[in-house]
Amino acid sequence: MGNVILDVRNIHKQFGALKASDGISLDLRQGEIHALIGPNGAGKSTLIAQIAGRLKPDSGCVHFLDQDISLKSTAQRANLGLGRTFQVSALAMENTVLENVVLGALGKRGKVFSFFKSVMHDKNLLSQARATLERVQLIDDSNRITAELSHGQRRQLEVAVALTLAPKAFLMDEPMAGMGAEGSKKLTKLLRQLKQDAPILLVEHDMDAVFALADRISVLVYGKIIATGSVDEIRSNPDVRKAYLGDEEAT
């Protein structure tokens, strides 16, 4: 096992009486895909939000590259190398595909406050942006308006934008959601390549994808991680079967 890149330590987050995160500890190591699964309402989104920076934990902390990032903003975390994709695509829909990726490259480079040079003529940014579009196979769609893309293509674009940041870790919130079989397969292949770049914390509902991809799986139920282990360990864990997989196995 590689070095620990992302380390979530004993996080608590409560909304009223609901304990959305009830002492969650979790780590992500170099070179792996660590999948996080759990039934609806288990607190996956809350956990992701705390790792990405949209929510602050009530107690506990998040370490990223040996640095406590619990109090840093989303933008600061991104600058440190946390690349994230969203469950519901968060893209600038009126802009072209290329503009969305150039924005990513711009975020990575910095120097946003330049007022006179045309950003879409910046050779460095463009070549970085085009390289990532090649990688996710969207290069032929560069000049299309993002709103015109299919659902699956938007997912690919999300990954492309995250890639422009050359992140040290990926945080992916249900990248397969709403994708057809064909699209899922394509994305599965892409994610397998991506883990060479940086480890991936993958929140996913699609069990086929999780079992095909994950090196380790953690199961979150009612704000607690009830098991962490390899694909086989999780498949055969009786608690997990009862809490979550039971229904899936039966069908």
């Binding site: 990405a52 920076g53 949209r54 903003s73 989303t74 933008a75 600061q76 991104a78 600058n79 690349g83 994230r84 969203f86 968060a90 893209l91 600038a92 829909m93 009126e94 802009n95 503009e99 969305n100 150039v102 924005l103 990513g104 711009l106 975020g107 990575k108 120097k111 946003v112 406050f113 330049s114 007022f115 006179f116 040079k117 045309s118 950003v119 879409m120 910046d122 934008v161 995250a162 422009t164 940041l165």
Partner: peptide, 25 residues
């Protein structure tokens, strides 16, 4: 200004604030 990097970032922030934060701006 509108075609500069500031313009691109501002336009994107209007459309999706979270997108801009996620790339570190």
């Amino acid at each position: 200004l509108n075609s500069s990097s500031f313009g691109l970032a501002l336009n994107s922030a209007r459309q999706n604030s979270e997108r801009v934060q996620t790339v570190g701006i």
